[in-house]
Design a protein around this nucleic acid. Structure first.
Length: 383
DNA sequence: CGGTAACCTGGGAT
DNA sequence: AATCCCAGGTTAC
């Protein structure tokens, strides 16, 4: 009865690590000649010393209500982390390859598979997890003005906002536009494969996210061939624009953390393939703009249902988009993006199983694009 | 300026 | 089996 997302559920670790023919050929056409000048000489001349990483799980000081892996990693913030065990996810942060899992009491532990520095890995992890921000405190505040949030929060504890690398986040969300999870993942995997290989876990290969330098090597044609469709030119276009920034594109993106949200959004929207929604995702998930609200079809549904019922049936236009964002911010405050994240997750078909059935909304059929917009004709459930 | 129509692609629905 | 429709939007008229 419940409609699970097959594209998601069917996803399997592809056993054969060796890529198919066409894949390899496209890659070799653009042989990546390592410009020696670009490689920082951080590696000491010791190749004799085995880089034996410690082989044990280390507890993080985070309870399940502060961080739920299943509600944080496979719910749309990143497409780079893979499920490698029952309650275990694996991915990279900068040059570090690590796994996270819930242990008996629900707390989270981490395991470093590969890293140039284990102490740096831990710091990078805490940063990546926004560990300094107390989710429980935020949610208490949200719950005070919103009974529905309070109720949902009971079932979806630990849905946290990550602090990703801006370049990585940007490329992922350009891929996400008007697309589905399965294909987004495939595209992100392709881009990722251009980065330095870091290791394999649970049948998945992991690569450091490629630098802009490396990304600039792929052509639009190669991306189209890899299935990017019209987003191919967005990727190459954006990489080109970033590469032309005086202090480098990565630095330019990082500098957007210091701007006010509207300015950061405007700046991001100058990049090809980046519109209001993608810009908000980047702002929220990588640029510390905690009140950015990515307004996609799901959030639009939420907003018209619970926040701005007067807009029910209308089409999602840029102006209404910002109106929705404003509504969220005035209701939830400076961390509105974190509230939106929970409400968004509650709408995901893949998470409905966690919720009592009274939270399930009848999926409205195609609202039958009428002139007046109000598509509630025969579903008998239009508030 | 605000509202529409293309845009790649693969899988599911009709 | 052949079409139609859609998916975490953006861009071009």
């Amino acid at each position: 009865m419940h409609s699970l997302k097959p594209s998601l559920a069917m996803k399997r670790p592809r056993p054969p690590p060796s890529p198919p023919l066409s894949f390899a050929s496209t890659k070799q056409t653009s042989s990546p000649p390592p410009p020696k000048s670009l490689h920082q000489p951080k590696t000491p001349p010791i190749s004799s010393k085995k880089p034996k990483p410690h082989t044990k799980w280390v507890p993080l000081n985070l309870s399940q209500s502060e961080l739920s892996l299943p509600l944080t990693f496979p719910t749309g913030q990143t497409f780079r982390w893979k499920q490698t065990g029952p309650l275990q996810y694996t991915g990279t942060i900068g040059p570090h390859l690590l796994s996270l899992k819930h242990i008996q009491n629900g707390d989270v532990s981490y395991f470093i598979h590969s890293s140039p520095s284990e102490s740096a890995a831990k710091l990078a992890l805490l940063d990546f997890l926004n560990a300094g921000i107390s989710l429980a405190k935020l949610w208490d505040a949200f719950s005070e003005n919103d009974p529905r949030f309070s109720e949902l929060a009971k079932y979806l504890k630990g849905a946290r906002v990550l602090r990703q690398d801006p370049v990585e986040c940007l490329v992922q969300f350009i891929c996400s536009s008007n697309n589905n999870i399965g294909r987004i993942t495939k595209m992100v995997d392709f881009v990722s494969s251009l980065g330095t290989y870091l290791g394999s876990v649970g049948g998945f290969e992991f690569h450091e996210f490629p630098s802009l330098e490396r990304l600039s090597v792929v052509s639009e044609e190669e991306l189209r061939q890899a299935g990017f469709g019209y987003r191919a030119k967005y990727i190459t276009g954006t990489v080109n624009v970033l590469q032309s920034k005086p202090d480098g594109g990565a630095q330019w993106l990082l500098s957007l953390r210091k701007l006010d949200l509207p300015e950061a959004i405007d700046a991001l929207c100058t990049l090809p393939g980046v519109g209001p929604k993608v810009a908000a995702c980047i702002a929220l998930f990588s640029l510390d703009h905690h009140h950015a609200i990515p307004v996609d079809t799901h959030v639009w549904q939420i907003a018209t249902k619970y926040l701005l019922p007067e807009l029910a049936g209308a089409r999602l236009t840029p102006k209404l988009c910002s109106r929705v964002a404003d509504a969220f911010v005035s209701k939830y405050g400076e961390y509105a993006g974190w509230a939106q994240t929970l409400l968004f997750i509650a709408e995901l078909p893949s998470q409905k199983a966690l919720l009592p059935s009274h939270f399930w909304d009848i999926k409205e059929k195609k609202p039958a694009k009428t002139k007046d917009g109000n598509g509630c004709s025969n579903d008998g459930n239009c508030s």
